[in-house]
Simulated scan of single mutants.
Amino acid sequence: MTRFARTNLPLLKKTASYYVMHIVVAAAVAYAVTGNLFMAFTLSLLEPTVQAVAFFFHEKVWERRSPRQRLTQVSPAPAP
């Protein structure tokens, strides 16, 4: 396994489970709107795929932001 995959394995697993859940929900909504099973599955693949990639990078940004945010929240205010 590459270093990238080992380092990010929990996040990649979370992203994959989110992707599967998102496809199922998107397919159900698309079927409810179109009434066509083929069209529902076709529509449900594009948006969740883009969303899963966006989710991965969104989580990476939040991981980087969290330590800085904790430092500013814990640091005492400067004395007047």
Rank of each mutant, 00 (worst) to 15 (best):
F55I: 03
A5R: 06
E59V: 13
A77L: 12
Y18P: 00
Q51A: 13
L37W: 13
K14D: 07
L43M: 04
F57R: 08
N36D: 07
R6F: 09
T72P: 10
M21F: 11
P48V: 02
A16P: 07
T34K: 06
Y31P: 04
P78D: 14
P78R: 15
R65A: 10
K14M: 10
M39H: 01
T15C: 09
V33Y: 00
E47F: 06
K13C: 06
K14N: 11
Y18W: 13
L12A: 13
T49Y: 06
I23E: 04
S44E: 02
Q73W: 04
K13R: 14
M39R: 04
A40K: 03
A52I: 06
G35S: 05
F57E: 04
R3W: 00
N36I: 11
A5Y: 08
R65I: 10
L12I: 13
V61Q: 06
A52Y: 08
F38V: 01
E47G: 03
A27Q: 00
L9V: 01
V25H: 01
K14Q: 12
F56W: 14
R3N: 15
R70D: 02
R65M: 05
T15K: 12
Y19T: 09
V29M: 00
T2M: 01
P78L: 14
T49N: 13
F41H: 06
V61H: 08
Q51R: 14
V74F: 12
S17M: 07
W62G: 02
R65L: 05
V33D: 02
L9Y: 03
H58G: 12
A54Y: 10
A40D: 06
A52P: 11
E47C: 02
L37N: 12
M39F: 04
V53P: 15
S17W: 09
R70I: 14
R70S: 06
T7S: 09
A54G: 15
R6I: 00
L37H: 12
L11T: 07
N36M: 05
V33I: 01
H22G: 10
R6H: 08
R3K: 14
G35F: 03
Q69K: 12
V20P: 04
P80N: 03
F41R: 02
Q69W: 09
R64L: 03
Q69T: 14
A16K: 11
R70Q: 06
Y18M: 15
S17R: 10
E59Y: 11
S44L: 05
V50D: 07
V24P: 02
L46Y: 00
M39D: 01
A30F: 07
Q73C: 04
F4G: 13
M39Q: 05
S44H: 01
V74W: 10
R6S: 07
V74L: 14
L12K: 13
Y19W: 15
F56C: 14
F55M: 08
T72V: 15
F38K: 02
A52Q: 09
N8I: 01
F4Y: 15
S44P: 00
A52T: 10
P48I: 01
Q73L: 05
R65Q: 09
M21P: 04
V53I: 14
T42P: 00
P80H: 00
V33R: 00
N36L: 08
P80A: 02
L9K: 06
P10E: 08
A5S: 12
F57V: 13
E59R: 14
S66W: 07
A79Y: 11
L43N: 03
L9A: 05
M39K: 01
S66L: 03
L46T: 02
T7A: 12
T15I: 02
R68M: 08
R3G: 15
